[in-house]
Design a binder for these strands. Sequence first.
RNA 1: GGAGUCGGCCGGGCAGUCGCUGUGUCCUUCGGGACAUGGAGGAAAGUCCGGGCUCCAGAGGACGGGGUGCCAGGUAACGCCUGGGGGGCGCGAGCCUACGGAAAGUGCCACAGAAAACAGACCGCCUAAGCGCGCAAGCGCCGGCAAGGGUGAAAAGGUGCGGUAAGAGCGCACCGCGUCGGUGGCAACACUCGACGGCACGGUAAACCCCACCCGGAGCAAGACCAAAUAGGGGAACAGGCGGUUCGCCGUCGCGUGUGGUCCGCACGGUUCCCGGGUAGGUCGCUUGAGGCACGCGGUGACGCGUGUCCAGAUGAAUGGCUGCUCUCGACAGAACCCGGCUUACAGGCCGGCUCCCCAC
Length: 121
Amino acid sequence: MSAFTLGFPKRARLLTRQDYDRVFAQASRSVDDCFTVLARPNGCDSPRLGLAIARKHARAAVARNRLKRLVRESFRHHQQDLGPLDLIVLGRQGVARRDNMEVMASLERHWNRLQKQCKVS
RNA sequence: GGAGUCGGCCGGGCAGUCGCUGUGUCCUUCGGGACAUGGAGGAAAGUCCGGGCUCCAGAGGACGGGGUGCCAGGUAACGCCUGGGGGGCGCGAGCCUACGGAAAGUGCCACAGAAAACAGACCGCCUAAGCGCGCAAGCGCCGGCAAGGGUGAAAAGGUGCGGUAAGAGCGCACCGCGUCGGUGGCAACACUCGACGGCACGGUAAACCCCACCCGGAGCAAGACCAAAUAGGGGAACAGGCGGUUCGCCGUCGCGUGUGGUCCGCACGGUUCCCGGGUAGGUCGCUUGAGGCACGCGGUGACGCGUGUCCAGAUGAAUGGCUGCUCUCGACAGAACCCGGCUUACAGGCCGGCUCCCCAC
C-alpha cells in the first residue's frame, strides 16, 4: 500500500500505552477551543494518530463516538500532508457542542500548525 | 366526528463516493491486496432484581443476615408475566393495590377531649323505689342512664318499633358482625343457604416481632493457555595435572581479585546452557443463544411444542465522513461475556381492540 492513500489502517494509529507515554513525555502542542493536539516525530515514514476524548468533556457515549470519528476522518484526509509525526488529539471543554463543520475546520488548523512547527524544529 | 382507554409497531429514505471491522474464497514480493458478504438499540442506558457461565469455598445442619408475602399457573429463575379473588377509584372501557399474622409477646397512639383500652361521665337526661323537709306543688339527699351535645383518625354496631322514671341489644324485625356447618371452587374466596351468639378481639407489623418460602462468595479486569527483554531463584558445564583402574570410572590437587609478611581461613567474581515462577505482549473465553421472525398445533392467557428461515463481535476500542435527490426535516441515545425482567429517557408517526358522547340512516 502506498503512502498516498486515504486509508486508516492499524499502523497509522497509536496502539499501546507506551506509544502514548512517549508522546506525552515530550511533544509540540497546538491548542484551540475544541482540541489540544500533541505531536512528536516518530521516525517512521508516515504519521500516526491517537485519541483521548475524556468522558469529562463529552458526557454521552454517542457524543464521544462522533468526535472520534470526525478526528479520524480528518486525519485520514490529511495524513499525506503531515510529516512522520505521532499525534494525540485531546478533547477540551465544550467540544461536544460544536457541529461537524466547526470541528473539521479546527482540526485542519491544528494539522497545518503542527506540520510547520515540526518541520522547523 | 369528538373524548377516552388498552395493546402492538416504526424511529428518515434512496443513490454515488472515500473509509473502518468480522467472515468466506482467491492472490501475495508475507507488508498486504482483490472479490463477495455481515456489521448497534427499543431502550444498547440506570445497574434495581433473576439466571447461565467461570473461579474460590463447602460433609450435613444450626445461628446470624438479607429477600419475598391473597390464590393458582407460566418460567432456567425472579421482586417478572398471565389468569383469578378481596379492597379502592371511574358513567364506562378500564386503572390502582406493601393484599400473611394484632386471642404469642413487647412498644407506640401526639393534639383535642370528661374519658384512648378489657375505659369513662364534662354538658346533659331521669327522680320510679328508699330517706329528709314541706299542707301541697316541689326541693334536697341517696341514686339511675349513656339516647342527645361537644372532641378526635378512632368513643364498645346501624335503622325502626317496643320498652322505661329516663334509658340501654333490655326485647323484637331488618341490615351488619362473629363462630360452626352446608353448597360452589384446585385455591384465594363467594353464597337470597342453615344453626348458634345480642355482639365479644380499637388502630399500628414500609414499629420490634411471629409464621411460611427462598438465598454460599466474587465476578469476563471471571478464568484458561502461549510467552520475550531485564532483574532475581535453582541446576549443570566451561582446565588441566598427578595417581589408581577390572577401561565402566574412582581418588586427589587445581581459576582470578581483595584481606595478609606467608599459610589456613573469609568475602567477591567470568562465560555458556538448561529448569521452573513471572511481567510486557499475544491467543482463547467471544458469541448459535432459556435467541429473533414466519407459519401450524395445544392453552382463556402468560407460555409450550413442531417446521422453515435469519444471525455485530471491536479491544487506544469498528458500525462513519462527504455529495446529490427526496419527505411529514429526523427524538432519546452507542453493544463490551450472554440472556429474562423492572425502571428511566424519547421529535414525530402508523395499526388494531374496547368505552362514553354527538350526528346521520
